[in-house]
Simulated scan of single mutants.
Amino acid sequence: MPVTGAARPGGREIVDWDDAALIAGRLASPGPVAPREELESLVASLRDAAGRAVEPVLEITRMSAADGRSLTASTLSGVLVVDRPGWAAASARSMRAMTEGALPVPPRGVPLAAELVASAEVGATLALLSTKILGQFDPFGPPDANLLLVAPNVLQTEREMRVRPADFRLWVCMHEQTHALQLAAAPWLAEHLRARTQTLLRDLTASAADPRQVPARVAGTARAVYSAVRGTETGARPAPSLVDSVLTPSQRQAFDEVGAVMALLEGHADVAMDAVGTSVVPTVRSIRRKFSARRSEGGTGTLDRVLRRLLGMDAKMAQYRDGAAFVRAVTEAVGTDGVNAVWSGPETLPSAREIADPVSWVRRVHG
């Protein structure tokens, strides 16, 4: 007879985020090798780029903090340059904050082995993602370290793309500082996303007919939700991901609504980073062309392509495209200030249908 969660002291959740972070840190590859002097210069350059990115982002987006405070490099975000294990640990903490209380071991219990597998699966996913992420603004992170820049991934990407390092680092930081500005303009947004995510996960846990299904279903959904909240195809849909196999139609709809918000956030940040002039990022057009090609290609190996589909990363790429198309269409219709109406409150966020049909959002919000 398997040992179940009910036989052990209560208070636990299905995924042990400390274990997941530890596993991710051990599995994550270290990344490219470089002399110590080059790595120190990289760290300093990324911190400097994060600071310099704030002014052009403010100018392009014409956004401001909801509380009226003056936004500068020091007040918008706290920059932390990390390696891959450091990113994985920070992301596990963020996932814990985002899902806290939503993944309790049910009273009837689950096999202990299944709990361990769930934590290991999430940890392995974080290890994989730690090799892909360039930067991330974490609304659940500490104020002095809520903008993460993953140094080895930036170095590896700029080497592979053969772009000018100073330009590429500033361009990446503009994307992440746009996310920081989004949360400053809409401080309610982080809690809105957390509440939606927690509701979805609670519903998923409660709907499992067999207690043994809970960890696997939650692990799959936690990975998919995380991929969506960190960043579907309109028309032809990407190949099924893990999330498609574990969600009911109503849960799928809720997940798509979260995805619509993230499409907005990612697309808005992509538009901002591309709107910067050549006086700020001289090689911006070349960087975008090469970066878009890299995104569309994904990995060249069969295993990498399979993993991207299983984890929903192909849908994530579609999210950038759809969100950017939405922002550009709305900007053309009602201008930059009209776009900024999305930060007014939850009721002005676009639905999944409106992301695909920007005119319907403009009609609903602007009349």
Rank of each mutant, 00 (worst) to 15 (best):
V82W: 01
S360Y: 01
G135I: 03
T72Q: 08
I60M: 06
A97L: 12
A180Q: 09
S351A: 03
T157P: 02
R169N: 04
P215Q: 05
A186I: 10
A333M: 14
T205Q: 06
R69M: 07
R308L: 08
W17L: 12
V105S: 03
A269S: 15
A49W: 07
G51D: 11
V306P: 07
T221N: 11
L303H: 09
L148G: 08
A166I: 05
G31F: 08
G68A: 01
D19L: 15
A44V: 13
R8P: 06
L148S: 11
P143V: 09
S94V: 06
Q136P: 00
P152V: 01
L46I: 04
T232C: 00
E297T: 14
L201P: 09
A184L: 06
A185I: 08
V163Q: 11
L46R: 04
E176P: 05
T331N: 01
D256Y: 10
S245Q: 10
G135W: 01
G345H: 07
R294E: 05
R230Q: 10
A254G: 04
R159D: 12
S64Y: 05
A113E: 13
F291Y: 13
A254Y: 00
R52I: 04
T278I: 07
V243T: 09
A228M: 10
E158R: 15
A216E: 12
I287G: 02
R26W: 09
G141D: 09
A190F: 03
I287K: 00
A20I: 14
R212T: 15
D144K: 11
R305M: 10
S41H: 07
V365C: 09
G135P: 01
P240Q: 05
D304T: 08
S94R: 09
E332V: 13
Q251P: 12
P107G: 07
V359C: 10
V154K: 05
R237F: 04
I23V: 15
L349Y: 01
E176M: 07
T221C: 15
S29R: 12
G298T: 08
V150T: 04
L58A: 03
V342T: 12
A97K: 03
A260K: 00
E191N: 09
A195H: 01
R69F: 02
L311E: 08
G123S: 03
D144I: 06
V43M: 07
A275K: 02
V258E: 11
L183Q: 08
